[in-house]
Amino acid sequence: MLVYTLRRLLQAIPSLFFLALLSFFLIHIVPGGPAQSLLGQHSTPARIAAINRSLGLNKPLYVQFGIWLWHLVHGNFGYSYTFDQPVLQVIGTYLPHTLELVSVAIVLAHLLAVFLGTVQGYYQGRWFDHVITTITFFLWSMPVFWLGVLFVMIFAVDLGWFPSGGISSPNGPGGFGSFIMHATLPITVLVLSTVASWARFMRSSLMDAMVQDYVRTARSKGLSEFMVLFKHALKNSLLPIITLFGLSIPGLFGGALVIELIFNYPGIGLLTWNAAFQRDYPIILATVMIVGVLTVLGNLLADLLYGLVDPRITYR
């Protein structure tokens, strides 16, 4: 398993290199560089040239790429033009906010999906199944941003229960209370937008498991329905969900990006968004690389977890 993990990590290197190459050149072939957006209306050709020289943007592109990559493999993401801080420091303040949202959402969405899917799959065709199937079908078809807008409309504008955005209020509670106030709506939207497909998956997975021989065997041993469901059927039907966990990471970050923009939540999505408009190349490249690494790790995690819960699988 260690060898397998190492080999997969090695295989990830060309993927990440290609990602770095692609994003770097895409960014730099675009007209209108950072000098333009830094100077704004004060830009003159001479000033632009001076800034380009100081940022190293006047060198040939492949040299710039080489320098950037060399720094990157040494853990140096460069220096943000707009924040006037090392990129890592900027990301260090923004990324935790996104991780808070995404991790809480992942845990809640999984718990909810497993619960709903299991009950639905077990009581297949009953009223509970029909109600939840209908709700998840609606949620599944719902664009994330529309759900976000609805939540802002209903819970922030109309009812006034939560602030419509941001991460802190001047006269609101501090600390954890503030987190609850500001993160509840974004997290709820994130959970609702992911729980639908996972619950549908869980339902069909449990329905598959319930007709397997080992469930019949368990029943004929005289085990209680509770034991049959939880010890035999549920355990096996969790397999695909575990794989989904790793594979859903890029999607969750994409969803978080949209949600951060709607709720003006200062996470990595909002950071990338602003950086893209201000042509803050080091920030854009860093966030793309981070999400790329998380995606690769998510895929690996999916395969490793799969083997962990299913002893029939061996790693080569």
């Binding site: 290609f18 990602l19 994003s23 793309v288």
Partner: peptide, 23 residues
């Protein structure tokens, strides 16, 4: 298939966002 693996590791929404802002 290796090409696909590489392409799959690209965060699509970030790429789209970027392409759209710039082009």
């Amino acid at each position: 298939m290796r090409v696909i693996d590489i392409l799959l590791s690209i965060p699509t929404l970030f790429l789209l966002l970027f392409l759209d802002v710039t082009f």
